[in-house]
Amino acid sequence: MKIYFTLDPRPDLKEPLVSEFPEIDFTFHKQLDESELADTDVLVTYGEDLNDHHIELSEQLKWIFVVSAGIEKMPAQKIAERGILVSNVRGIHKKPMAESIIAHILSLKRALPFVYKNQQNCEWNKKARLSELNGSTALIIGPGAIGAEIGRLLQAFEVYTIGLNRSGQPAPFMNETYRIDELKEQLPKAEIIISMLPSTKETKNLLSYEDFKLMRKDAIFMNFGRGDLVSLGELVRVLEDELIFHMVLDVYEVEPLPADHKLWKFDNVTVSPHFSSHSSRYVERSLEIFKPSLKKWLSGDHDVENKMDILRGY
C-alpha cells in the first residue's frame, strides 16, 4: 500500500510514523507531484492542491486525509463519483484558534492597538477607550469543537455564552443554545459575535448589512469560520457607516485580500491573513488523528475519525 503526503513533516514527526507502519510505502513531497498519483492508495493533503484531473489520475485512490478543517476548494463532485472516503483534522484547530480569538478580544478591550501606536510615536497618552471582557455576552455562531473551546475560555472570564447551531440542542460551554434560524433574535444580545461556520450552501452570505444593524453599537464582530459568510461589499458598508465598534476578520470572500482593497484602510477593523489556526504543533496534531485512523483502515474498518460528506462540505 502506498500513502502519498503532499506535505513533508519534520523528521521528528515523519520518522516515528514510518517506523510504526513498516508495511506501508510512504512518499513525502513538499507539493503535489502528478506522477505519484497513479499508484497512490491514501492521499494526505491540505486539499487546496487537488483538482478534477488529479482525481482522474489517482486510479487506486480510496481515502483522502485532509490536513485542514475546510474542504470547500476540493473537487467534491469528482471525489463523490469515485466513492473516495474523505476525512479531516476537525478539532485540532481549537487550541490555537481559541487563543487567537481571546487575544484579539482582550487586545481590543484593553486598547492594546492604542498602546502600540503610542509607543511607535513616543507618545504618553492615557485617552483610550478601555472596557472589560468580564460580565459581557458572546454569541458563538457554530459552537462545534472550536466554538466550544472558545466558550470554555470565555466562561473563565465570566462571559455569558450563547450558541447558535442547526438543531438548537445544547452545546458544550454554552449557557444557552438556539437554532441558527433564530439569528436575528440573538444578535442584539451580544457585545461579541463570533462566527465559526463552515462554508456550505446554507451559510453563504448568511449575514447581510441588515443583520449588522441589529447588533449593538459597541459590538465586536469576528469571522474565523469561512469568508463567504458575508460579502466584502457588505463589510465595507458596515465599516463606513460605523454600525458596530470593531471587526476582526481572519477569512475573506477573496483570498488573499487584494492590496488595494478598501478593507485595509479602516481603523475599525483588524485584518488577519487567515492564519489563526497556525501553530508549530499543527502537523503534530494532524498525525495524532491520522495514525489511529490508519490503524483502523488497515484492519478493514473504514469508519475513521472525522469522516466527511464531501458534497455537504462537513
Rank of each mutant, 00 (worst) to 15 (best):
F275T: 14
L57H: 08
I193T: 08
I101S: 01
V304C: 10
N121S: 08
L32W: 08
V86D: 04
I71L: 11
H53L: 11
F157A: 11
K94L: 08
K296V: 06
W297C: 09
K94D: 06
E191N: 11
I180T: 14
N121K: 15
F212N: 14
Y178C: 06
D228N: 15
P172T: 10
I193K: 02
S231V: 02
P22A: 05
E123M: 05
I105L: 15
E210L: 08
M247S: 05
S286T: 11
I146G: 06
A38N: 14
M74L: 10
F65T: 00
S286Y: 01
D8H: 10
T203I: 07
K109A: 15
Y252T: 07
I84M: 13
H261I: 07
K262C: 06
D25S: 13
R110M: 08
K2D: 12
N118F: 07
G142Q: 03
P170N: 09
E48Y: 11
L239R: 03
P16G: 11
L197M: 10
I92K: 10
Y252D: 03
Y314Q: 06
T137W: 04
R312T: 14
I101F: 02
M308P: 00
N125G: 09
T270C: 00
P172E: 08
E99D: 14
H54V: 07
M247C: 13
N121R: 11
C122E: 01
L197G: 06
S286F: 03
I3G: 02
N118H: 11
P170A: 06
V115H: 10
L130V: 15
H261E: 07
G313P: 04
E72T: 09
M222I: 15
L164S: 03
D301A: 00
Q77A: 13
V248M: 10
G91W: 08
D267I: 04
L298W: 03
P96V: 10
I150L: 11
S272Q: 12
H93A: 10
P75A: 05
D8Y: 15
A103V: 04
F21Q: 01
V115R: 02
F26C: 07
V269S: 05
A148S: 14
N125A: 06
L133S: 03
A138N: 03
S272K: 07
M215I: 10
M308L: 12
S35M: 04
L164K: 02
R129T: 15
L257Q: 10
I150W: 01
R110C: 00
K126F: 09
S58P: 09
S87Y: 02
R216H: 00
M196E: 08
M174G: 09
D218L: 09
L206E: 12
N223V: 02
Q119M: 12
C122A: 10
R166K: 12
H261G: 09
L108K: 09
L207W: 03
Q60F: 03
K262D: 14
D228W: 00
S100T: 12
G142I: 04
N268A: 04
W264L: 11
M247T: 07
K62A: 02
F173W: 09
